[in-house]
């Protein structure tokens, strides 16, 4: 990892937290839908990097969002789960392409990229809403919230991803 990419990761980390807590936490579509776009951090993070450090960093990201939104540590739990599962999800989405030395997410097809992002978001939201509601044991409500919030998050994430994509040389 070059110092340049470290710098980009740090900036991305801070900006995504700020955007999440100051803008997206206050959207409240239909009263309860708040997209969680900070998951894009895990999507953008370099593939070949130290996994141990990546899991730790993701936990910290979730914890910071929790800290701002008074949600105990459920963002942290959900984020660390998808950080741990990310290699498996990538194998599922990109298959043999992953073995190439200079493979980047931007090299994959658009469908593969969106599938990867979608699986990350749905896994995250499943863990998040299960933990958020677990005291009432209301499966239907959990699924409803996962469905609608996932749709909003996926839509906005794809939008942001396209907006801030690195142009291919």
């Amino acid at each position: 990892m070059t110092s340049n990419s470290t710098f980009i990761i740090v900036i991305r980390f801070i900006l995504l937290i700020l955007v999440q807590v100051l803008v997206f936490n206050n959207l409240n579509f239909f009263g309860y839908i708040n997209p969680m776009v900070y998951i894009l951090f895990l999507y953008w993070y370099p593939i070949k990097d130290q996994r141990f450090f990546f899991i730790l960093l993701s936990f910290l990201l979730g914890l910071m969002v929790d800290w701002f939104s008074d949600t105990m540590a459920i963002h942290a739990a959900a984020t660390v789960t998808i950080a741990y599962l990310r290699p498996a999800v990538m194998r599922f989405c990109f298959g043999a392409n992953l073995e190439f030395q200079n493979f980047r997410i931007t090299n994959a097809t658009q469908a593969q990229q969106i599938a990867f992002l979608t699986i990350l978001i749905i896994l995250h939201h499943l863990v998040f809403f299960t933990l958020e509601i677990f005291s009432f044991g209301n499966t239907l409500l959990i699924l409803k919230k996962v469905l609608f919030t996932s749709m909003a998050t996926i839509l906005l994430s794809i939008l942001l991803k396209t907006l801030f994509s690195v142009k291919k040389q």
């Binding site: 141990f52 899991i55 459920i74 739990a77 660390v80 789960t81 933990l131």
Partner: peptide
């Protein structure tokens, strides 16, 4: 192990 540890902390 790190994942389990962090998950326990969060829970």
């Amino acid at each position: 192990l790190l994942y389990v540890l962090l998950m326990i902390i969060a829970l």
